[in-house]
Simulated assay, not measured.
Amino acid sequence: MSHILTLSDRTVIQTLLKVGYSQKQIAEEVGVVPSTINYELKRCPKGYYDADQAQENCEKKLTHRGRKTLLTENLREFVRGIILEQRWSFEVIAHILQMPFKTLYNWLDKGWLDIKREVLPDHGVRYRKSHDGRGQYTRGAKFINQRPDEANLRQEIGHFEVDTILSGKTRGEVLATFTDRKSRLMIIRRLPGRDSKAMTKAILELNEELRGLIKSITSDHGKEFAGFKEIEACGIAHYFAHPYAPHERGTNERLNREIRLHIPKNQPIESVTDEELTMISKYLNWRPRKCLGWKTPLQVFFGDLSEKFD
């Protein structure tokens, strides 16, 4: 099982280097293979290892995971030249390049264009990107790389993938969907909104209903999961998938698409009755699955937990 170094690990590495430990000895103390330490030391090019500098380097590289950008060096120079020399707006450049102008603003906000908003013709006042804090709260969180084999290999009940289903872009009620990785059982809960307090409450209440069997949850970086520390304080491990990697929560994503067959994106969640949600749950959980040896998710889930729910 892989191990992602934390700031605490890097502080230990820095301390042990100062007292003369070898890379092999440090690897044994931290609990990683020696090649990990060798790679880690290269994060500080000046030859002096600094834990804070290494952590900053790691976080910067993590932001480049997942979906690949279309921005090339030639395209970067073209956009910069047009902005600085011709004073064209992003809307005009996007039209010429046949791409969404929002993409150009995203590149600008990430610092990939090497220009500042103030050099734009309108100083960027027409487009102010709203930040919802996505990803800001995951400092110190556990990522999917650290998830145990029992969850990765679907060896036991209680490891859930979690997500939300929205009513398009409007505010209002949302659906929280919980999918057990081993049995593929789907549990649907109605939430008053897409906020962390509502999601945290739903997870803890579901765990109580299931008599404390939830061992872990895996989610994306949505702001509704900002309460992961409170969840972990109650004994439930919380793992975050990498950005733009829905395949890492593939079971939940696929079943969410099946729910969308019954609840289209433009349909408000408030208009869906509890009876309809019950019927959707039956449709998902009472159907035999080939991957389960033609058993239903209900059979596998409660079959493994027959003693707990007698």
Rank of each mutant, 00 (worst) to 15 (best):
P246A: 00
K229F: 05
L255Q: 12
I263A: 04
L185M: 15
H242S: 09
K265D: 05
A176Y: 00
L261C: 11
S183E: 04
E161Q: 14
A245K: 12
K215T: 03
Q155P: 00
R260P: 11
I188F: 12
I165N: 01
T164Y: 01
H247G: 11
H247I: 12
E248Q: 15
E230Q: 12
L210F: 11
K169E: 11
R181I: 13
I217L: 04
K182Y: 07
A151H: 02
G172D: 08
R190C: 09
T251L: 11
R181W: 08
K169Y: 11
E173I: 04
L166K: 14
I214V: 14
R260L: 09
A198C: 11
D149W: 03
S219Q: 02
L206I: 05
G158C: 09
D180Q: 07
F178C: 04
R184S: 14
N256C: 04
R181A: 04
P264F: 08
C234E: 13
I217G: 02
G168H: 08
P246M: 02
T251Y: 04
K182V: 06
R194N: 13
P264G: 12
D180A: 10
A198Q: 06
M186K: 05
S196L: 01
N252K: 00
G250H: 01
I263T: 10
L210R: 06
S216K: 00
I263P: 01
H247E: 15
A198D: 10
L191H: 06
E208C: 12
P264C: 11
E232N: 04
R171C: 09
R254M: 12
S167W: 09
R194E: 14
H247N: 15
K223L: 14
A233W: 02
N266Q: 13
I203V: 15
G222A: 07
N266H: 14
S219P: 02
Q155C: 08
E161T: 05
E224S: 09
I214M: 12
H221K: 01
T251E: 07
N207H: 10
L191C: 07
K223D: 06
A245F: 02
K223A: 12
P148N: 03
T218F: 02
C234M: 14
